[in-house]
Structures are given as structure tokens and as C-alpha cells.
């Protein structure tokens, strides 16, 4: 029985490590800030990931050639954005997206050079958590049941040949 619980502890530990690695990966590479936080900052060196919605009616330029200017809406502030980069896969008005670039504090302009889709990590995490926890719980309960059944059968000496009534 100890061996049984040890094996399951191992499974839980590995799942935990994977969860930790994934959340760290997310924090490091994929977390984003809001336009409100960018506007108040003065840092023009670091590359930022800003998430906001492209304001309706503000998009000018030619996104298909990789040049565009627009406003990105946050909760209370909006951010003027100049986009120069590869043709963004989907840049349109009323779309929530992530911009990668630097904040130009002098000209109050965000210089974006790449766009990304909203990560929606909450959905990804919940799908994996639901599926994995349910599968683990299901297999665990069945295995434990079988272990108990074997014990019970051993105790009731059902191994011995026995004839019907």
C-alpha cells in the first residue's frame, strides 16, 4: 500500500513541477501591461507588451505593408501607437490585442514593431487543470479500489478452488 501512495505522490509532484514551469514561462515571456501603466512610465529602453483595444475610427496607414498608426484603449487612458514591422496578421479596429515595442516618453508615442493575439491563458490553464485533475482523480480512485479488492479477496481466501452450489 505504501508503494501505491508513493507512486501517486510522484505523479502529483511531476504535475506540480510542470504547472510551475508553465506559469513561470508565462510570467517571463507572455504577461502584458495595460496602456494606463505605459502612459505614466518614463522607461524607453525595455521592450513592453501592452494589451488594449484598437479604438474605433483611429486606424490610419496601411497595415498590409506594415505601417500603421492608431490608438490603443485602456481602462482610462489611451495610447498613441506607431506600428512599423512585418504585416500584422490581424490588426483591425475594435480588436483587443497585444503590442510589442518601446514607449517613447518624449513624443508620448508607443513604437510597436510586432503584434500578438491576446494570450487568454486563463482558458488554457482551466482546460488543462479540469482535464488533468479529473483524469488523475478517476484513475486514482479506481486503482485504490482494485488494491483494496485484492486485499479483501486475499483475506476471504477466494483463491482456493470452490465449486458452485
Amino acid at each position: 500500500m505504501t508503494g501505491f501512495y508513493l507512486r501517486w505522490a510522484g505523479v502529483i509532484v511531476i504535475v506540480g513541477i510542470l504547472a510551475l514551469l508553465t506559469s513561470q514561462h508565462y510570467e517571463k515571456h507572455l504577461s502584458s501591461v495595460s496602456p494606463d501603466m505605459v502612459v505614466t512610465g518614463n522607461d524607453s529602453k525595455t521592450t513592453l507588451r501592452v494589451q488594449g483595444m484598437v479604438k474605433s475610427g483611429s486606424l490610419t496607414g496601411n497595415p498590409e505593408d506594415g505601417h500603421a498608426a492608431f490608438e490603443l484603449l485602456g481602462a482610462s487612458n489611451s495610447l498613441k501607437v506607431q506600428y512599423e514591422g512585418p504585416p500584422p496578421e490581424n490588426l483591425r479596429e475594435l480588436k483587443t490585442l497585444i503590442l510589442i515595442g518601446q514607449w517613447d516618453a518624449e513624443n508620448k508615442l508607443f513604437q510597436a514593431r510586432e503584434t500578438a493575439l491576446v494570450t487568454n491563458y486563463g482558458y488554457v490553464a482551466s482546460a488543462y487543470i479540469v482535464a488533468l485533475l479529473a483524469l488523475i482523480a478517476f484513475v486514482f480512485s479506481m486503482s485504490r479500489n482494485v488494491t483494496f479488492l485484492y486485499q479483501e479477496i486475499k483475506e476471504s481466501k477466494i483463491y482456493e478452488p470452490e465449486l458452485g452450489p
Partner: peptide, 17 residues
């Protein structure tokens, strides 16, 4: 699926589901 693969061009990170 969670760490090594790239996001999809159209769906982004959600493709991992």
C-alpha cells in the same frame, strides 16, 4: 504542448487547448 510549441498564427496561445 504548453512550453515548447509555437502559438498558432490565427488563434494564438489558445491553440494549446
Amino acid at each position: 504542448g504548453l512550453l515548447d510549441s509555437p502559438p498558432d498564427y490565427y488563434q494564438g496561445e489558445v491553440v494549446r487547448i
